[in-house]
Amino acid sequence: MSFFKKLKEKFTTQTETVTEKFKDGLTKTRGNFSGKLNDLVARYRKVDEDFFEELEEILIQADVGFDTVMDLIEELKMEVKRRNITDPNEVHGVISEKLVEIYEGGSDASSELNIQENNLTVILFVGVNGVGKTTTIGKLAHSFKSEGKKVLLAAGDTFRAGAIEQLEVWGERVGVEVIKQAAGSDPAAVMYDAVKAASSRKADVLLCDTAGRLQNKVNLMKELEKVKRVIEREIPGAPHEVLLVLDATTGQNALIQAKTFKEATDVSGIVLTKLDGTAKGGIVLAIRKELDIPVKFVGLGEKMDDLQPFDAEKYVYGLFADDIEKGEAEE
């Protein structure tokens, strides 16, 4: 379990609270995923075809997606052969290693936000209906505000009933201003206003909400392109981030969502929400692998500070935390 030990060491030197948040938030996920994995390892005496088949099932149940699972299993088989591993307990470590490897990918796309120091940073939020865009913006506004930044919100969801009000409530809670127009108005016009206001008021961060839309509605995707174009035109280089908000409970469709939204708005990162349920959000693996979009934040609860920057190792630590502690006790 040297890999776990490495992870553990890394995190004890880091801020305890953040790691704890991952651990707590992922309790259900871990209980499910790790529990199954432990059970699997306990039941098999040696690593054989049946073992891999069951492992395949566990990963598929985590919504990792069939193609990614097949690749992962293939790599695992090679690794097991190369290292001459026969004890299932040892495979355990290799699995988490491989998971981190996929998350980090071959690319250097980082999970850091592209923040403009001493200048306005514009972040556009996109996604299908009901994934938690507005809530994410509220939480992120809170986090920027507590860093001492001047934050402005743009109420770009002019379609859904109550959406503007929802963002306004967040604005009040956090204590930041919301730029809005009447319900039903053109979202691109709202963005124009917001960008102008952010520039003239010398804001540090502008967070732009948009209406949820299913990715196969071509007209609505065009509308989103226009919203982005307006921002681009007013501030060269903006939006500095386009974040796709994904619900962790979403299955294979998330891959199509990521692909379509990326084509329309050049998505630069993902916010994975609702990870505090039993869902595992394994589809982000496939998304990272096939589309190379990094996860930048994860939603681990309902509280304002439950949105955390994503860290692949922490995530895997969260998934396997029980094993790390168990491994320690054994030593």
Binding site: Q61, A62, D63, T249, G251, A254, I283
Partner: peptide
């Protein structure tokens, strides 16, 4: 239930 829900739908 959201029709896009993945494997977790059964737990829910």
């Amino acid at each position: 239930v959201d029709a896009m829900t993945g494997q977790d739908a059964v737990n829910v």
